[in-house]
Design a protein around this nucleic acid. Structure first.
Length: 310
DNA sequence: TTCATTTGACCGTG
DNA sequence: CACGGTCAAATGAA
């Protein structure tokens, strides 16, 4: 109902603007990676990466909230309840009436190989869902108490456990305060946390549109049973097999958004990482001339939009 | 000490 | 009453 007062034209402009920003950030990142020594220090690769990630996440989120691109109706599952009626103040000892269920029709659903979207989330619950192998995790924005009402639910997809179905509720109002906590001063090698998308990798037949690597970062909590030996890390970058690793649920449950990409290193691999982050598509609906007159969209959206287009 | 995560309990909804 | 969303005490990590 309340599609807000925003007109379609305005929305479209905003989405395009968001994608254009993403493109600009990508170009900056490419420049930075090509000429790391010329970096005047104004913007780091991580910052650019986060901005890019955020641009696309926002856009995807918006698109998936649009009926045209809706997958699965957006209001499947849980009950529709009237969040229209404003929320009651929380924090009462007597918890009766202290909360209302979320209005699912106001949600945007996306499918992604990673939970990371550039925002800082705090996990506040986890629930075993009926007929689902995987628990559903509940997150709210770290800045909730500063007024940001954004929240999300993350669930591993049963049929495709390498993917997450992420349902977003409300929008971030804390955008400019957002910081992924371990970007700034983390070790460039240690913080490697790469997400890549690879269309052609023969070792990834089951999920041809992406692959993922997650190398333990010093700041990621509970990184047990994984080697943090730097030689392992470096060699893993040259080992294509490792591009297909998926981090187990428990190891990704940090409420923080992980950030991928090295900080200052510049090698062919780095560029590969960046270019692999997008997959080329000929889908005419989304031709955005990102680079070389090709259309680049995040792989995850490819399946999303592909599904929605039906 | 602070802050994030875990997890059982509580509560609303169908 | 069952299910799922949220709360908040307990726990753990930094």
């Amino acid at each position: 109902m309340s599609i807000s007062s925003e007109t379609l034209v305005t929305k479209r402009k905003r989405l395009i603007g968001e994608l254009v920003k993403g493109k600009e950030f990508t170009a900056q990142l490419q420049t930075l990676l090509n000429n790391p020594l010329k970096n005047n220090g104004s913007v780091s690769a991580e910052e650019l990466a986060v901005k890019i990630l955020r641009s696309f996440t926002e856009t995807l989120s918006e698109l998936s909230s649009d009926e045209t691109f809706q997958i699965d109706g957006g209001d499947s599952g849980a009950s529709v309840c009237s969040l229209e009626s404003e929320k009651k103040p929380a924090k009462v000892k007597d918890r009766r009436g202290c909360y209302k269920r979320r209005r699912t029709s106001d949600s945007r659903k996306i499918v992604s190989p990673t939970m990371d979207d550039g925002y800082a989330w705090r996990k506040y619950g986890q629930k075993k869902i009926l007929n689902s192998e995987y628990p559903r995790c509940y997150y709210r924005c770290t800045h909730k108490y500063e007024g940001c009402k954004a929240a999300r639910q993350v669930e591993t997809i049963k049929e495709d456990p390498i993917l997450y179905e992420i349902t977003y509720f409300d929008h971030h109002t804390c955008t400019d305060r957002m910081r992924a906590p371990h970007i700034v001063d983390s070790d460039p090698v240690e913080s490697l946390n790469l997400v890549s998308f690879d269309l052609k990798n023969p070792l990834n037949q089951d999920h041809p549109s992406y692959s993922m690597i997650n190398i333990p970062s010093g700041k990621e909590p509970k990184q047990d049973a994984q080697s943090t030996d730097m030689s392992d890390v470096k060699s893993s970058l040259e080992d294509s097999n490792l591009w297909h690793k998926k981090v187990p649920m428990e190891k990704k449950s940090s409420g923080y958004a992980s950030v991928w990409g090295p900080k200052t290193r510049s090698c062919d691999h780095d560029q590969e990482v960046v270019s692999r982050f997008y997959s080329c598509t000929s889908n005419s609906m989304h031709e955005l001339d990102m680079e070389e007159n090709r259309c680049w969209v995040p792989s995850s959206s490819e399946s999303l939009l592909g599904t929605a287009a039906k």
